[in-house]
């Protein structure tokens, strides 16, 4: 499996689209002190919020792009048949590919996080806030982003295992991301008094989507990091466990589908 992991990382490093995405991400981070200086009373908070948003946006593009093209690219270039002729199983190939993607994502996030720390420090020094920067919470927020995008990558790999095109897995992943981001808010809205006025079938359908869709909002610790609020560590651990279980489940389902797929 490890040669497969290394091969995946090497092929990702040659991807020019990713170079461009990372360059845009770094540019966004450089602009954070400029944009946050427009704030009247919360320069530090703005810089943290903007940096986390920029990193999350870049990670979304990277994980959807890489995950969606995880198998498609090899099928398209007919590398897959050559690879599968080697003494590796399909599941080893897929898991190796995912581990390669995950390691690359973690590396990218680490670089972006270090750059974020620097720009936040720079912006915060111009107008210190009432609350000092909670560096630990900020690190947890980055960890939350990491968990979330590993899960999203596994979703993208799942769709990639199903399809031979790039568009279907890519747009399906984005759709799942949007649904999973909004599902908690919609669920809370529907279980409140407003939900009583909605048709039963609509409520049942929304609840079904809520339970089946990965809940990406649970990984969101941005508001805690921005305003230095105390984090509920039990909830964080629970969410991490949920993320890990969901990621492994998606990987298992991907392997199951990929094992049975006709590849001619």
């Amino acid at each position: 499996m490890w040669p497969q992991v290394l091969l995946t990382i090497r092929s990702i490093l040659r991807d020019r689209i990713l170079h461009a995405v990372l360059a845009v991400g770094l540019l966004l981070l450089i602009l954070v002190p400029v944009f946050s200086s427009f704030s009247m009373r919360q320069v530090q908070e703005s810089s943290i919020g903007l940096a986390l948003s920029a990193v999350s946006l870049v990670m979304l593009v990277i994980s959807a792009h890489l995950g969606a093209s995880a198998i498609f690219r090899d099928v398209d270039r007919r590398y897959l048949n050559v690879l599968l002729a080697l003494p590796i199983t399909r599941s080893q190939f897929l898991v190796g590919r995912f581990v390669g993607l995950a390691l690359f994502l973690c590396g990218c996030l680490s670089i972006l996080a270090v750059c974020s720390f620097l720009v936040i420090l720079m912006a915060a020094s111009t107008y210190p806030a009432q609350q000092p920067i909670a560096w630990g919470t900020l690190a947890l927020a980055f960890l939350g982003i990491c968990n979330k995008y590993l899960l999203l990558t596994s979703v993208a790999v799942f769709f990639s295992a199903l399809s031979t095109s790039f568009s279907l897995p890519f747009f399906s992943t984005i759709a799942i991301y949007l649904a999973g981001t909004a599902s908690q808010e919609v669920y809370e809205y529907l279980v409140g008094s407003f939900g009583d006025k909605m048709p039963e079938i609509f409520r049942a359908l929304s609840k079904f989507v809520y339970y089946i869709c990965p809940n990406f909002s649970s990984f969101d610790l941005n508001i805690y990091a921005v305003y230095s609020l105390p984090v509920d560590y039990t909830q964080f651990l629970l969410t991490s466990l949920y993320g890990l279980a969901y990621t492994l489940f998606m990987l298992w389902a991907s392997v199951l589908i990929f094992d049975r797929r006709e590849l001619n």
């Binding site: 903007l50 946006l57 981001t181 808010e185």
Partner: peptide, 23 residues
């Protein structure tokens, strides 16, 4: 409510943008 649901983790940035526009 709709914005909040759609913005997800970007809600801090979205609120900042809204205030900046008014300013």
């Amino acid at each position: 409510e709709v914005l909040k649901a759609l913005a997800g983790e970007h809600r801090v940035s979205l609120a900042l943008r809204s205030v900046a526009r008014v300013m």
